[in-house]
């Protein structure tokens, strides 16, 4: 596990060695605030909570998360540094985890930087801070889930643009798995049991229940399994394709 930490620190430092980190954080904060105040009607609602803020997170992540995850493996494969990394005495799994946690920690940092909104809402009224904390946890879990998907898409290709597009499309499908736009595509040719299974994969339903302030063990388990599954898929894909 020590290697996970070493790889994570290197990866995290590399975000800040380029403009990527600063651009991402800036855009994330700008969009998050714009959505909250203009689309969410933060003031007009007259309620001291952060619902208009958290409701837009999945949509914000839909484009911003693949922008982070696209480089995770595609860049390593393109530059050949993957050969250097995987011939050090580390396991593939340690490398997959290290890079994933670096990306997740980075989004956690961006998320934490939205704290002025939390201060604002506490200044304006007396919100349920427990519910806000739960919503933050939920938002972070959605980000982690989407990052694990993006990590897998990034492992599939040497091209970062392709990784980005695959990431957005797959994340979109998973976000909306419970809605007709996705389910109709499967309903005609899959048995109902499978369609129900796909529907239960939906991010949004799990996120919405956490965002309301209820942290249910089932929702936590859902995100843990989802992340585990896609990271495992990442390592399998890499094992097969790393030297292509």
């Amino acid at each position: 596990m020590r290697n996970v930490g070493i790889i994570m620190r290197r990866e995290l430092a590399s975000y800040f060695a380029t403009p990527l980190a600063y651009v991402f954080i800036l855009i994330f904060l700008m969009l998050a605030n714009a959505f909250t105040f203009y689309l969410g009607g933060f003031y007009e609602r007259g309620q001291a909570d952060l619902a208009p803020f958290f409701n837009f997170h999945p949509w914000l992540y839909l484009f911003l998360i693949p922008a982070i995850s696209m480089k995770l493996w595609a860049e390593e494969r393109k530059s050949g540094s993957i050969e250097l990394l995987l011939t050090q005495p580390v396991t593939l799994w340690e490398a997959v985890l290290g890079k994933f946690f670096a990306a997740w920690l980075f989004t956690a940092l961006a998320l934490a930087l939205t704290f002025p909104l939390w201060i604002t809402v506490n200044y304006l009224g007396s919100p349920d801070n427990g519910a806000i904390l739960a919503a933050y946890v939920g938002s972070l879990l959605v980000a982690g889930g989407l990052l694990s998907v993006g990590s897998c898409m990034s492992a599939l290709t040497r091209n970062q643009v392709v990784a980005f597009i695959l990431g957005v499309v797959t994340c979109f499908a998973l976000l909306l798995a419970g809605y007709p736009i996705v389910l109709d595509a499967f309903r005609s040719w899959l048995p109902q049991a499978f369609v129900d299974a796909i529907a239960s994969l939906a991010f949004l339903t799990h996120f919405e229940s956490i965002a309301k302030g209820v942290i249910d063990l089932r929702d936590l388990l859902y995100f843990a399994m989802l992340i585990g599954f896609f990271l495992l898929a990442t390592s399998i894909v890499l094992d097969v394709r790393k030297s292509d």
Binding site: A13, S14, A17, G80, S81, E83
Partner: peptide, 13 residues
């Protein structure tokens, strides 16, 4: 100790 072909590294480091 292994030097891969083309001596790849992490460019930004």
């Amino acid at each position: 100790g292994y030097l891969p072909e083309g001596a790849p590294g992490y460019g930004e480091m």
